[in-house]
Design a protein around this nucleic acid. Structure first.
Lengths: 158, 158
DNA sequence: GTACCGGTACTCGGATATAGTATGTCCGAGTATGCGTGG
DNA sequence: CCACGCATACTCGGACATACTATATCCGAGTACCGGTAC
């Protein structure tokens, strides 16, 4: 049930990348150092974000990561699903069709009520995350932080 | 991120208990047999439900499990939280206060935007589950199933 | 002076160990029953 | 005949192995840059 910590890492790194000039890739070790994270492991999650089309990775000198599109068009859900996967948290194993109380398959054309309820809750969760963008996250930063981050990124990229 | 399969087991067993006479405890092996589950492991989850006050366990001969209160007063969320725990799926590790980009603690009196968003989504998920009761689940069973279950439970208890 | 070419240093990407949690199983603690016994 | 006490069988509860996934790390593939060289 617990979400991977990579979700938090991914959201922070994505919103940090949104605070850098769009044409300036940020190296992975800069991102890791900014938040005190192990960059070798951070690589795995950034890689997932890249595969999902949220980030764009640029190899070689002057390489690094940048957002694949504008922060207004990246939702929190995009980041979460890139790292955690888009499959529902609840997986129905159809135990109603097993054991002595097994229900005949032709009575199971509709998904069972339990599955429906869990799927509906899952949809509510995803809808909530879909309603917030990375740009919103940046807007909600305490005053002064955005400017300081821009300076730090510029210094690191120097 | 994936929910334990025990959630499905717990919900099915709880709704099945709601279909039995309230004064008739159902043995664990009957529940396990009804759904084809390993009763030794099912014990663990039923135990969690008992500790959470959803079920009531009765030891000794003629013992078993029964609902601790009427099905109308048991929400799906009660069952889920009993098994999965009531802690939020997202745990904020406050990485914004670590690394070279560390934000000063006095600027962190408010929870960070990321945490707020995740907590809000979690609340939406829980609200959705809180809105459905075990009685609702029983009502949504296919026609005939409820009667058949009652018969099976009566035969097993006999 | 300019264009081409090769070496080099730097970046990310995937394959590889380790730890923590979910899964699965077992035996012991506790209780109502049923029988035997005494009044 | 009735009440009491005890042995018994049956139930759940918590301690003990195992499997899988999340965590953490390393080295190799690929790319842009920079200098040297030929024209």
């Amino acid at each position: 049930m617990k979400l991977s910590q990579g979700v938090e890492w991914g959201l922070h790194c994505t919103s940090l990348l949104a605070q850098a000039p769009a044409d300036r890739p940020i190296r992975r070790d800069v991102l890791a150092g900014h938040y005190g994270l192990p960059d070798a492991y951070l690589a795995k999650h950034l890689q997932a974000l890249t595969r999902a089309g949220v980030l764009h990775a640029l190899p070689g000198p002057r390489g690094g990561y940048r957002l694949a599109r504008s922060p207004e068009r990246i939702t929190v859900l995009d980041v979460v699903e890139a790292i955690e996967g888009s499959t529902s948290a609840f997986v129905c194993q159809e135990i109603r069709q097993r054991g002595t109380g097994a229900v005949s398959p032709d009575q199971c054309s509709n998904p069972c009520a339990i599955r429906s309820v869990m799927d509906q809750a899952d949809a509510a969760w995803r809808d909530s995350l879909r309603g917030v963008t990375v740009a919103d996250l940046v807007d909600r930063l305490p005053p002064g932080v955005r400017e300081r981050n821009a300076d730090l990124l510029a210094a690191a990229g120097g």
